[in-house]
Amino acid sequence: MSAIFDTLCPMHARLGAHGHIVHAGPTLQRIHPEGDLRGRRFLELFEMRRPVTGQSMEALRAAAGLPLRLRLRQPPGLALKGVLVALGPDSAVGPEGGALVNLSFAIALPDAVRAFDLTRADFAATDLAVEMLYLIEAKTMTMEALHKANLRLQGGKTEAEAKAFTDTLTGLGNRRLLDRVTSRMIAGERDFALMSLDLDFFKAVNDSLGHAAGDHVLRAAAQAMLEETRSDDTVLRFGGDEFMLILAGMTRRAEVDEFARRLIARLEVPIVYEGETCRISASIGAVLSRDSDAPDIDAMMAKADAALYAAKQSGRGRHVLYDPKTPPVMQAKATQRRADTSPAGPPP
């Protein structure tokens, strides 16, 4: 009789009429390695959590057929599930008034397998325990692979986003970044100056010394602009020799004048490329957000471009600050030139 139950349900126990263990299946015996379970009272080894019963055998038998939740009293105090059959007068299994209890590790299976070093042989051949362990490990492996794949994709996305806002030649921001930066400043009601800057004589450098020299000059000019501005300012390249500067917190006209003068002087410092000296200058048109009640970036750009056009009309290396009292003539051409929203490309 015991051999049959040991094979079919190695986690069973047969209890006598007083609640003592008469026989324990081999796996149940393994989880109590310190001694033979026979003769021990079942409820002294296992705490009955649900249903709530008394400590008597009678109370235990009353839970027959119900789903039982138990806890191993000894460490690690594993939770177990079980089911109980009350034995009647003519039972072949055990004495009248006794019981047959079968237990399972249920969700605590991985802990139990580790704690008691269980092997495949400790489970009935029909038990799904090994399949469950297999699935847990397969799931863990899959989740890790997906997690890594996710991290790689996330990295790729961040890189792509950074690229989308960057001019590849100079590393400056591009037109897309202008919208993002200025919309934040406008939303935060922070004043700024917007400067539209074209390099003067750049085309001559490009034509006489070639594209490589032109690229070098663009990079040097970009570097100069970064050095002349503060960390919370933004320098953007719109393609070709057109740049845009966002100068945070600038509200005074004299301040803009001084900055523009300094920047132009800096850009007029000759740039040496492979033994050849390249001389450029810059024209600047500027506008203050403070001059509009409700700054609008498209309108500000149009005004900055009109001022730039006026600066160019008066010669090279000049700057004009848009004055709302005496606005320069708005040049349709100048406005349109800036309307291209494509990302910055190589110089023409």
């Binding site: 991985p110 070093d117 362990l133 863990t140 989740m143 890790e144």
Partner: peptide, 9 residues
Amino acid sequence: FALGAGAGQ
């Protein structure tokens, strides 16, 4: 090989 030596536990 021990059944309970799996990863992630």
